[in-house]
């Protein structure tokens, strides 16, 4: 079942008098629970495509349809609500809140997403997720005392704790070594499959492609291959 559709999406940047087409009419669909990787050379437009799909910047033309709703016609506040409730994000760096413990990072995400669970239920939910990512023993730790790999695992936990429908991951393993990158991808795959979360991921690491269901090759603002 298709959950996400991009229809003839274009993105144009104006630099002085020069107009640059970063995305040239991209159309694609994402199926529920599927992990899709966007690959391509630097400047091919893959990160721009991901951020437009995630509602972090508007498209110049075209439509972004999520679960039957057109993100391109929504107000900023409506898009914010969709992002908070339905989307999860993992970036190249963990970007954790430095003054919140691991447990508080996840509790905050549940609160932001508008969770209707009681405080006790939320704590149980957090404990379960931390158990899955092997971080329960560090739940009272602050980010400054975590290793790079641990921080990124917490970032993944924060991205899925509220059970989003779509996970957007922009180079999630770029700041990790080879061993930790594989662990990270295994974790993302395990969690998204278990929770039936659709994933759109940007990566330049070919080793990570073995963990995805579908690869979209991008070049010069267009999708070349749809494997």
């Amino acid at each position: 079942m298709t959950i996400f559709t991009l229809d003839e999406v274009e993105k144009t940047f104006t630099n002085g008098e020069i107009e640059e087409n970063i995305l040239k009419g991209i159309s694609l669909s994402l199926k529920e629970g599927e992990i899709t990787a966007l690959v391509g050379t630097s400047g091919s437009g893959k990160s721009t495509l991901l951020t437009i799909a995630a509602g972090l910047q508007p498209a110049s033309n075209g439509e972004v349809l999520f679960d039957g709703n057109n993100l391109t016609t929504m107000s900023d506040e409506q898009v914010r609500k969709v992002r908070a409730k339905e989307f999860g994000f993992v970036f190249q760096f963990a970007h954790l809140v430095p003054f919140l413990t691991v447990e508080e990072q996840l509790m905050l995400m549940l609160e932001v997403s508008g969770s209707t669970l009681s405080k006790k239920e939320q704590k149980n939910e957090v404990d379960q997720v931390l158990d899955v990512i092997g971080m329960e023993h560090r739940k009272n730790a602050y980010p400054s005392s975590l290793s790079g790999g641990e921080k990124q695992r917490v970032a993944v936990a924060r991205a899925i704790i509220h059970k989003p429908k779509v996970l957007f991951a922009d180079e999630p393993t770029a700041s990790l070594d080879s061993k930790r990158s594989k662990d990270m991808m295994e974790l993302i795959r395990y969690l998204t499959k278990k929770m039936n979360i659709t994933t759109l991921m940007v990566t330049h690491d070919e080793e990570m492609l073995s963990y995805v269901d579908r690869i979209l090759q991008m070049s010069d603002g267009m999708v070349l291959e749809n494997e």
Partner: peptide, 13 residues
């Protein structure tokens, strides 16, 4: 600024 940006991205008002 970076932190606020991330918080905004994840949906904080």
């Amino acid at each position: 600024i970076g932190l606020y940006g991330i918080l905004k991205a994840i949906g904080i008002k």
